[in-house]
């Protein structure tokens, strides 16, 4: 089991698509790839697309929260799209919904950010 991180830039928005299983073992690759893209690219905001994320545990919550703080410290916004039921429950338990907005599709998530910028 592994995790693929797909990155795409749409104007000033970085789209990050996670495919596979996000746990303690695969969290590092998400951290490094996102950090690199956020710091090097000219993107202000991030859309984290979880449509094809089949599994996530609390290590995933940690890495998502960490990237949220980074984006926020740079004056940007991070939103989530296409969240699965199992991941949704972890978001609810941890209170992550209070700080992260969730959209049904990538398109609506991007649209919400373009209003912001």
């Amino acid at each position: 089991m592994s995790l693929q991180v797909e990155l795409e830039q749409h104007r000033n928005v970085l789209i990050v698509r996670l495919r596979g299983e996000l746990d303690h073992h695969t969290a590092d690759v998400v951290r490094f790839k996102m950090e690199d893209a956020i710091l090097r690219g000219r993107c202000d905001h991030v859309v984290l697309s979880l449509k094809d994320l089949q599994f996530m545990d609390s290590s995933g919550l940690g890495v998502i929260l960490g990237r949220y703080k980074l984006v926020k410290s740079r004056g940007g916004k991070m939103v989530i799209s296409d969240i699965q039921t199992s991941v949704k429950r972890l978001f609810e338990l941890s209170g992550l919904f209070k700080i992260l907005s969730v959209y049904e599709t990538e398109r609506s998530a991007i649209a919400s950010l373009e209003v912001v910028s």
Binding site: A27, R31, G62, L65, L90, S94
Partner: peptide, 19 residues
């Protein structure tokens, strides 16, 4: 305790026991 972690430097969420 929810959100408590002994290793905040490792970006742990502190949610393991709660889950």
């Amino acid at each position: 305790q929810p959100l408590y972690t002994s290793k905040p430097e490792l970006e742990r969420s502190g949610m393991g026991f709660t889950i």
